[in-house]
Design a protein around this nucleic acid. Sequence first.
DNA 1: TAGCTTTCAGAAAGCCTTTTCGGTTTCTTT
DNA 2: AAAGAAACCGAAAAGGCTTTCTGAAAGCTA
Lengths: 342, 342
Amino acid sequence: MTPAVGPSRSQPATLSDVARLAGVSIATASKALNGRTQVRAETRQRVIEAAERLAFRPNQLARGLLVGRSGTVGLLTSDLEGRFSIPILMGAEDAFGAGEVAVFLCDARGDAIREQHHVRALLGRRVDGLIVVGSRTDPRPSLGRELPVPVVYAYAPSDDPDDLSIVPDSVDAGRIAVEHLLACGRTRIAHITGDPGYLAAQERAEGALTALADAGLAPVGEPRFGAWSEGWGRAATALLLDRHPDLDAVLCGSDQIARGVMDVLRERGHRVPEDVAVMGFDNWQVLTAASRPPLTSVDMNLEQVGRAAAHALFGAIGGVRHSGVETVRCRVVIRGSTAPLS
Amino acid sequence: MTPAVGPSRSQPATLSDVARLAGVSIATASKALNGRTQVRAETRQRVIEAAERLAFRPNQLARGLLVGRSGTVGLLTSDLEGRFSIPILMGAEDAFGAGEVAVFLCDARGDAIREQHHVRALLGRRVDGLIVVGSRTDPRPSLGRELPVPVVYAYAPSDDPDDLSIVPDSVDAGRIAVEHLLACGRTRIAHITGDPGYLAAQERAEGALTALADAGLAPVGEPRFGAWSEGWGRAATALLLDRHPDLDAVLCGSDQIARGVMDVLRERGHRVPEDVAVMGFDNWQVLTAASRPPLTSVDMNLEQVGRAAAHALFGAIGGVRHSGVETVRCRVVIRGSTAPLS
DNA sequence: TAGCTTTCAGAAAGCCTTTTCGGTTTCTTT
DNA sequence: AAAGAAACCGAAAAGGCTTTCTGAAAGCTA
């Protein structure tokens, strides 16, 4: 690393620089560059060339100060490392980035104090709105109703029904998963899932049981709750096979669990998917693609959750306020671990 | 989702509101709130209470306009989904978030056009600096020297040596990995790694070979390049065992490869770590923790890369300009897959 | 009490842009 | 050619804040 004397960075050009170079007033320069009428085409051209030459970029701070909207939104996440926040964040960034909106990223690390701090800082910067991204689908404390800007909660809904939240439809996710297995001709279906303290685990199980009941079936054993890990998948499968060696499908609460399940199935001589179909949740590429065979999984469409949140916020900024919990449907991504019974 | 008429969101309080409530001029109010002298303690107190009552938050847009610094930086990433960008991003966000700086997040999706677009937008918002985060350690095109604000490149260095880049030390990473295996008493070490088009793969291999040579050893077979996948790990291991059944350690270019390697080793009856030690790169928790046994891996300290980038940018904004490539050392995280030979 | 310093408050300029509105020039029209 | 219309341009204000500089009041000394 070599210290060096920087080239004196010249201040960025201002509108008055452009106006001076083009030989017009500031007002005319502004109108020319903003495509407004009341400027002769020839004059406009001169201004545009001047702006070009000076690499002029209008100062958004000044514009924001004037028009009362900063053109920025705050994205408040509770855990950047969490793999659920990122796709949502991408979707939101995507939906905004296309337009004229820039996104402030803040990570509260699950700490309410830090979150409060970030909210204050963002309000000081006059963001036009806020998206709060959670890391699990359980409700989280509302930021309150007294904020001067609209707020949309994504993935983790607010506990205040008066707020607007966008979440994946976990109940439906459980249902469509079972329906896929039924469509493959499976009838002896078990469910191994994760931490019972997670609403997502409960809701998926609920949806799955409903779909089974609708088909006049009962699950093979009760749904088994445990942890979101491969280890639990392995342990639960071992127990399950001892009691119900005749099962023909296992619906897993996560892709990690599914990997553990598949490992034990293979070790015990059950073929996937010929003997037993296996299916996961989350559609986490690195796991679904690498497993043998590739794993069918339910994708939560998190990017779409992010985009929907961005659009809702956009609407709210425009004055269209909504409230309640809006759900986004999940989808089954079919791979080799599920196939019709031949 | 229920449409509703929003409560008319009151405009945030301004300094002049505070001044009026406190019965002073806005100049005095400003000085009182900013802890400047020339204000009687009693007056200051009155102003502070007024500000409190109105929930006054100074408008950073106005302040930025005035002082010529916005207190914001742009974080330009090329792939948000990439698992390498995120920790760096966290580190940077962390280093800034503590202070008075807010971070604009932009994802260019690996598209140069979009990147250029984002740079322009950020400059329009008068960011004080830019951090460019890449998704692999190969050099990337510089944004150019003509930017009005300092730029720091993280993970992927700039191809212009006059820019400042912060990257993990991949050569050293290869070296310390081998040194760990040597310290475990291993001497017949093979290297299975990923895509040879990645500089990281080349440099890690180089460091590994150097460390072996320094110990007077040669690798078991040549380093095998392939893909960063479990499948390649499995395939390469099968080939390797056929030719060199006597090896006692495999250094893998990634955790994914390592998982494939361990699977095949186990299937063929080699115990890990008793017979063969296995070690990966990236220290990706979900893989290292779930494998059997837990995987020893080299952590690239990416958060530290992000923090270092943020600090460097901070310095550059303050006028201390550096250039060249600065490296951050990696570290070995020891788990069950490597152990001393007994 | 006159003259000095010290302490504190406020007026005003400035940051950069947009927009309104009044003023000047050019073009039509009869 | 003169009046009216149209086209074009610029002065100025506004937005919220910080800072400098001026002014006033209070406290001090002789």
